[in-house]
Computed example of a mutant assay.
Amino acid sequence: MEAVEFSLKNKSLHLVQKPIPEVTEPNQILIKVAYAGICGTDLHITEGTFPCIKDEPFTMGHEFSGIVEDVGSEVFDFKPGDKVTVDPNIGCGACHYCNSGEPHYCNRGGISSYIGIFKDGAWAQYINVLQRQVHKLPHDITLEQAVLAEPISCLAHSWDRIAPITVGQKILILGAGVIGNLWVSILHLQGHRRVTVSEPNVNRLELLKRLETGFDRVTPDQLKERHEKNPDYLFDVIIDCSGCVPAIEHAFSLLNKGGKLCLFGMASPQAKMSISPLELSMKEIQIIGLFLNQFSFPKTLGLLESMGDRYLNYDSLGIKTFALKEYRQAIEELKKGSISKAVFKF
């Protein structure tokens, strides 16, 4: 089968031929990949700024959907032909965090055993996964939509962390990549209308118009100008999807009293930010870190059903599909910002 492998030693990606994995354990499921996404985290991995397998090349890709090809002897809830998506996050099942219902904090599992980061991933025609990571798709969710399940699962967990967000509050989203666009979609779905999106790439701001939400779209410079002209130009909730420290630091100054600053974007491990502890206290601001959670996938499937083609249309979200062999072109277009997301279609 074809697969795209990454070597951290050489910081290089290569299209390779690998044998199709076989089901060797009773609780394994072999999946024929239909769609696999390129995440911002994947770009950080290829730049050497995000932890991953160090010693040997591995197949990347942690966002994917596909069709069950084969199952182990102890798999009874899935059968060949089932359409599925997969949670790449799994805990060890034995530590304090796992037993507390927080497997994403697990030091032996969690991010340190993530599919496509510390295990072979789905930038390949087939992938072997554990049964407990697989979720069967409802009939009205397509494989094309289901490749977005993993990023939306992060949003579902984040929604729980930052709730309540009351309709009528002023909300600012930093970044109009696909994560920012998905936040836009979910907020609009939930009835929010007082939403502003800040993005330096004007191409991405133009792409955002396709979602037809009517939300305000500005560049960071325009954001600064508005605040300079009107000191009361403030927000109740700010969701960072950029991981850009200067943007986050500026956003802190735009928070209303009692406001929430939600850090969703993945910053570099070396990045540091500077904020005023006094302002933090006097405004009673909450800073909330957002990551992922293994138990958010059932909610995610509900969100996918609710969003439907109105919000998950690839053209509206600025998503472009590529063949696996076009991986270099896909990454290049994603970095340029001419698209919000690249997805491999098999």
Rank of each mutant, 00 (worst) to 15 (best):
I45E: 09
T46C: 04
T46H: 02
E47I: 00
E47A: 13
E47V: 00
G48Y: 05
G48P: 14
F50C: 09
F50I: 03
F50T: 01
C52W: 07
C52E: 12
I53D: 04
I53R: 09
E56S: 12
E56H: 09
E56F: 06
E56G: 00
P57D: 07
F58T: 10
F58P: 11
T59M: 02
T59V: 15
T59Q: 01
G61L: 09
H62V: 05
E63C: 12
F64K: 05
F64P: 05
S65P: 09
G66R: 07
I67K: 13
E69V: 00
D70H: 14
V71C: 15
V71P: 13
G72F: 10
G72N: 05
S73Y: 10
S73Q: 15
S73E: 15
E74Q: 13
E74F: 09
E74P: 01
V75H: 08
V75N: 07
F76W: 09
D77H: 10
D77K: 12
D77E: 14
F78D: 04
F78K: 10
K79W: 08
K79E: 12
P80M: 03
P80H: 07
G81E: 12
G81P: 04
G81A: 12
D82V: 08
K83A: 13
K83R: 15
T85P: 15
T85H: 13
T85I: 11
V86G: 12
D87M: 08
D87H: 01
P88D: 06
P88V: 02
P88K: 01
G91L: 05
C92Y: 07
C92V: 01
G93R: 08
G93K: 10
G93D: 03
A94W: 08
A94C: 03
A94E: 09
C95N: 06
C95R: 07
C95M: 06
Y97N: 02
Y97K: 01
C98V: 01
N99E: 11
G101R: 11
G101W: 08
E102F: 13
P103I: 00
H104Y: 13
H104N: 15
Y105T: 14
Y105C: 15
C106E: 04
C106A: 10
C106F: 03
C106V: 02
C106Q: 07
N107Y: 12
N107W: 08
G109N: 03
G110L: 06
I111K: 01
I111W: 08
I111L: 14
I111A: 10
S112I: 01
S113M: 08
S113Y: 02
Y114Q: 12
F118L: 02
K119D: 00
K119F: 00
D120S: 02
D120N: 11
A122N: 05
A122D: 06
A122L: 03
A122E: 06
W123G: 11
A124S: 14
Q125G: 13
Q125W: 01
Q125L: 05
Y126T: 01
Y126M: 01
Y126K: 01
Y126V: 00
Y126S: 01
I127V: 15
I127D: 00
I127P: 00
N128Q: 11
N128D: 10
V129N: 03
L130Q: 14
Q131S: 11
R132F: 14
Q133C: 07
Q133N: 13
V134M: 12
V134C: 15
V134F: 08
V134H: 06
H135A: 08
